[in-house]
């Protein structure tokens, strides 16, 4: 979906990162920290995840999934954390796009969402998510899942 397809509406999106030079992030050495991309429309959640993971990983956050392909290309993350209820494209759709994209196929996806329904969980599995965490989440759960996924 092209955001420009709907004229008159501005797509607000932010990309934050703890990486000093995000443009050169791809030029990393083997000793570099692994990168996590977080897509969530809630700045508080973005902030919290950033704070929690900051010490261990390079974290890039985005408010919408619309720039996901560019972000993937630019930052080449090792893990993507997605919210479900996102503007424009919801998390499931994003995940599906990611999994059909050659560059994103192998990146594990972690859903961090307020959707607790069994159906949502199943949908998450179906679209190829590696883990599913519900909000409000505990830091230990997040650490456990992220470590697990990045260790693999």
């Amino acid at each position: 979906m092209d955001p420009t397809a709907e004229p008159g509406r501005l797509i607000e999106h932010t990309v934050e990162s703890n990486v000093k030079d995000p443009d050169n992030a791809c030029r990393r050495t083997s000793g570099d920290r692994r990168r996590v991309l977080v897509v969530d429309d809630d700045p508080v959640v973005r902030r919290i995840v950033l704070e929690l993971l900051n010490s261990r990983y390079n974290v890039i956050t985005a408010s919408t999934g619309v720039q996901l392909p560019e972000l993937l290309k630019k930052h080449q993350p090792d893990l993507v954390i997605l919210d479900v209820m996102l503007p424009w494209l919801n998390g499931f759709e994003l995940c599906r796009i990611l999994k059909t994209n050659s560059s994103g196929q192998d990146i594990p996806v972690l859903f961090l969402t307020g959707c607790k329904e069994k159906e949502d969980l199943l949908t998450g599995k179906e679209v190829g998510a590696a883990a599913y965490l519900t909000k409000p989440f505990y830091a230990k759960d997040l650490y456990r899942e992220v470590d697990r996924l990045l260790a693999a």
């Binding site: 809630d42 959640v45 919290i48 704070e51 900051n54 010490s55 307020g114 909000k135 409000p136 989440f137």
Partner: peptide, 23 residues
């Protein structure tokens, strides 16, 4: 409602977790 009620909870718990990390 559940989404909106959980949203702030996520925030509160998240900040608690951050504080607990004592970073």
């Amino acid at each position: 409602v559940s989404h909106d009620l959980r949203g702030p909870l996520t925030g509160v718990r998240g900040y608690c977790e951050i504080l607990k990390q004592q970073a």
